[in-house]
């Protein structure tokens, strides 16, 4: 029974990672490595909390968080798409900016409680039928509506990327913008759209932490989870379905390091926190050894596209 609670907690802990990872997958699919995930999550978390605290309305809170994340992504987008700035450096700068932004605007809200209306709205709801399945029901279908929305997003983003014309074009831009441009795809528009979408999802991931995961606003609510999301994208090999599994696996490791503290272990508990990163390194190595192109990063990842270079 205890194990079921543990897994349910892992799903909850993994949800913020799932949102951000899905966002970063979309950004990387269009060829942009955005290392600003941490910053965008921080912006979403603080703006979501402030909006929720001020308006007491869950829809307003979530919407503002998504807009904040997208706004951060658009700074990155403008610099890397239109002004051709280096993606790694711009992304790192966005992270510095977002962390500062959240610390500054969140300062007066530290220690404040999430309003009643929002906690009730996001409280776990047991789904009819699905919630009654033994074990599975308690783990996956007795969760917050925020978690259910992430299930929906996994499917929606999979369909968007692999079953629609827009997704095909998006992937083409990420693999070969020269060919995409030549076949009449508006490269920059696709980049802007997908990067903004990535930002909105990262903002939602951050707001999950500040609105659902915690009940009192702490000093640093995201605290490095954005970097785990960057790792997860590789771990999931740019696949939304695997991102879901990976996010829960990383969420479980997160919970486990607290959970295991009650036992005496032969190894240091702190080494456990390195597991997500070690796992990611192994995935990186194995995917590069295997050389199959559909499991590797998009070919133009990290490179900017300049039309006149064609």
């Amino acid at each position: 029974m205890e194990f079921v609670f543990f897994l349910a907690a892992a799903v909850k802990a993994g949800t913020c990672l799932l949102y951000a990872t899905l966002g970063e997958i979309i950004s990387e699919k269009v060829g942009h490595l955005n290392l600003g995930v941490e910053g965008m999550m921080q912006m979403g978390a603080v703006v979501g909390f402030i909006a929720g605290f001020t308006f007491g309305n869950p829809y307003a809170a979530v919407l503002c968080a998504a807009i904040a994340g997208a706004a951060g992504a658009l700074i990155y987008g403008f610099l890397t798409i239109s002004l051709k700035a280096n993606q790694v450096v711009t992304g790192l700068t966005l992270s510095i900016f977002g962390v500062g932004f959240a610390a500054f605007f969140g300062k007066n809200f530290v220690g404040k409680k999430v309003p009643e209306a929002i906690t009730t709205f996001f409280a776990p709801i047991k789904l009819p039928v699905l919630g009654d399945i033994p074990y599975v029901g308690q783990i996956f279908f007795t969760q917050s509506i925020y978690v259910y929305f992430s299930y929906f997003l996994v499917i929606a983003i999979y369909i968007y990327l692999y079953k629609t014309k827009w997704g095909l074009n998006t992937r083409m831009v990420g693999e070969n913008p020269v060919a995409a441009d030549a076949s009449g795809i508006p490269v920059d528009k696709y980049k802007y759209f997908n990067i903004a979408l990535c930002g909105a999802l990262c903002g939602l991931g951050g707001a999950f932490l500040s609105l659902v995961y915690i009940s009192i606003y702490p000093v640093n609510v995201v605290s490095g989870r954005g970097w785990i999301a960057v790792a997860l994208v590789i771990f999931a090999m740019w696949n939304p379905g695997k991102a879901l599994l990976g996010a829960y696996f990383f969420g479980a490791l997160d919970i486990a390091s607290f959970w295991l503290q009650q036992y005496t272990l032969p190894v240091s508990i702190y080494l456990f926190t390195a597991l997500p990163y070690l796992a990611t390194v192994f995935v990186l190595i194995f995917t590069s050894m295997r050389k199959s192109s559909n499991k590797k990063e998009p070919a133009w990842l990290g490179k900017n596209y300049f039309k006149e270079d064609r």
């Binding site: 790694v88 590789i234 390195a274 070690l278 390194v281 990186l284």
Partner: peptide, 13 residues
Amino acid sequence: TNETLFTLMLNYI
């Protein structure tokens, strides 16, 4: 192997 992501992970390790 992609060194950007590899070196980023090694920071956290």
